[in-house]
């Protein structure tokens, strides 16, 4: 019988264009890795959700005025039972950790329409860090049990 080899903690990455259609490709890519790594349903959901929100934000707001093209780089790297997720983009500088949290609405009348994406990222990722590195925004999310 062949000895069972431990599953190597492989780093997976994908480069996306700043277009909304890329969100579909991103979601299929994450789904595929999630299944291969046997991620729990709740972990896979949390990763899908945070990536959808962060990348949608970059696609919608990241474009610089005079620069039509920029790219988004997503990397998943398993570590000690957890998962580190990097979202890097060369768009307009934006620090999601410094963005204002909308106040919690108490009624439908004063509820804002939208603006909940980063609220969800803060709740579904265990930590979120940001640094500006030359022309790049670098966001790191950590998922742990």
């Amino acid at each position: 019988m062949m000895p069972t080899e431990p599953v190597a903690a492989k780093i997976e990455s994908v480069t996306l264009l700043p277009e909304l259609a890329e969100l579909v490709r991103l979601s299929a890519w994450v789904d595929d890795i999630g299944k291969r790594l046997e991620m729990s349903m709740s972990r896979l959901y949390a990763v899908q959700l945070c990536l959808e929100e962060l990348v949608a934000n970059v696609v919608l707001h990241g474009r610089k005025f005079h620069e039509a093209k920029f790219s988004i780089y997503v990397e998943l790297s398993p570590s000690n039972g957890g998962l580190e997720v990097h979202v890097d983009d060369s768009g307009w500088p934006f620090d999601p950790t410094a963005a204002m949290q909308p106040p919690r609405a108490h009624s439908l009348d004063d509820a804002p329409v939208g603006g909940l994406g980063l609220v969800l990222v803060r709740r579904f990722a265990h930590s979120i860090t940001y640094r500006r590195d030359g022309d790049w925004n670098r966001v790191t999310l950590l998922f742990a049990d």
């Binding site: 959901y45 899908q48 959700l49 959808e52 929100e53 949608a56 439908l108 009348d109 509820a111 329409v113 939208g114 603006g115 909940l116 994406g117 609220v119 969800l120």
Partner: peptide, 19 residues
């Protein structure tokens, strides 16, 4: 099977209108 902030936006918009 999946709900993200754009879906929430749609539900809240609908609820505001009905309300």
């Amino acid at each position: 099977e999946f709900l993200a902030s754009m879906g929430l936006r749609s539900l809240i918009l609908a609820a505001k209108s009905v309300h």
